[in-house]
Measured scan of single mutants.
Amino acid sequence: TGIVNVSSSLNVRSSASTSSKVIGSLSGNTKVTIVGEEGAFYKIEYKGSHGYVAAEYI
């Protein structure tokens, strides 16, 4: 489990890349469940599926 540490919002992406499609966003202080790690990204549970967020902001 981690907490989103941004002042505005954090993009949730379809894969572990900044060039991948943005599938949603999370606001600051949102609690997320981390299920894996790929490079600089965490794989998280997101809306019944999975998404990827930049690990530096969690």
Rank of each mutant, 00 (worst) to 15 (best):
S25D: 06
I23N: 01
I23Y: 01
V53Q: 00
Y57V: 04
S49M: 13
V6H: 11
V22D: 03
N29F: 14
S14N: 09
S7M: 11
S25A: 11
V22P: 05
G2Y: 08
S9D: 09
V6Q: 07
A16T: 06
S25Y: 14
A54S: 10
G28R: 13
S15G: 12
R13A: 04
A16D: 03
G36P: 00
S7H: 12
S20L: 02
E56R: 12
G51Q: 01
Y42R: 03
S27F: 10
S14C: 13
I23R: 02
N5L: 10
E45M: 11
G39M: 04
S17P: 01
Y57N: 08
S9N: 10
V32D: 00
S27G: 10
Y57W: 09
N29C: 15
G2M: 08
K31L: 13
E37R: 15
I58G: 01
L26M: 05
I3R: 10
E37F: 14
H50S: 07
I3S: 06
V35M: 09
V6R: 09
G2H: 08
G2T: 06
Y42L: 12
N5R: 12
V53P: 00
T18F: 14
A40D: 14
F41A: 02
K47N: 14
G51N: 01
A55C: 11
N5C: 15
A16E: 02
S7R: 12
Y46T: 01
I23K: 03
G24L: 03
Y42W: 05
S15I: 06
K43F: 05
T33G: 03
T33L: 09
S14T: 08
S19T: 13
S49C: 09
R13P: 01
H50D: 06
G39P: 02
G36T: 05
Y57G: 09
K21Y: 08
G28F: 14
S19M: 10
N29M: 11
V53N: 00
G24W: 04
V4G: 04
T1G: 08
V32L: 05
V4M: 05
I3V: 12
G36M: 06
T18Y: 14
Y46K: 00
K47H: 10
T30S: 12
G48V: 03
V4Y: 04
S15Y: 07
I23Q: 02
T33H: 09
E37T: 15
G2L: 07
Y46P: 00
Y42E: 03
T33W: 10
E37M: 15
G2P: 04
V4S: 05
V32T: 01
V53M: 02
G48T: 06
V6S: 13
T18W: 13
V53F: 02
R13L: 15
G28Q: 11
V22S: 06
T1Q: 11
V22A: 06
I34C: 04
K47T: 05
S19P: 05
I3N: 06
K43Q: 07
K43L: 10
F41T: 02
G36N: 06
S27V: 12
F41M: 04
V22F: 05
K47G: 12
G36A: 09
K21N: 10
G51S: 02
E38L: 07
N11L: 15
I34E: 00
S25W: 14
L10T: 09
E56P: 04
G2C: 12
A40H: 10
S14A: 15
A16I: 05
T30K: 05
E38A: 07
G39V: 03
A54M: 14
E45T: 07
E38V: 10
G39H: 05
K21V: 11
I23A: 02
S15T: 10
S9T: 11
N11M: 13
S8T: 14
S14G: 08
S14P: 03
T33M: 09
S49W: 07
I34A: 00
S17L: 07
I34Y: 02
G2D: 04
I23C: 05
A16R: 04
H50L: 10
S9A: 11
G39F: 05
S49A: 13
K21F: 08
L10H: 03
E37I: 15
G24C: 08
S27H: 11
S20V: 04
Y42H: 04
H50T: 10
T30V: 09
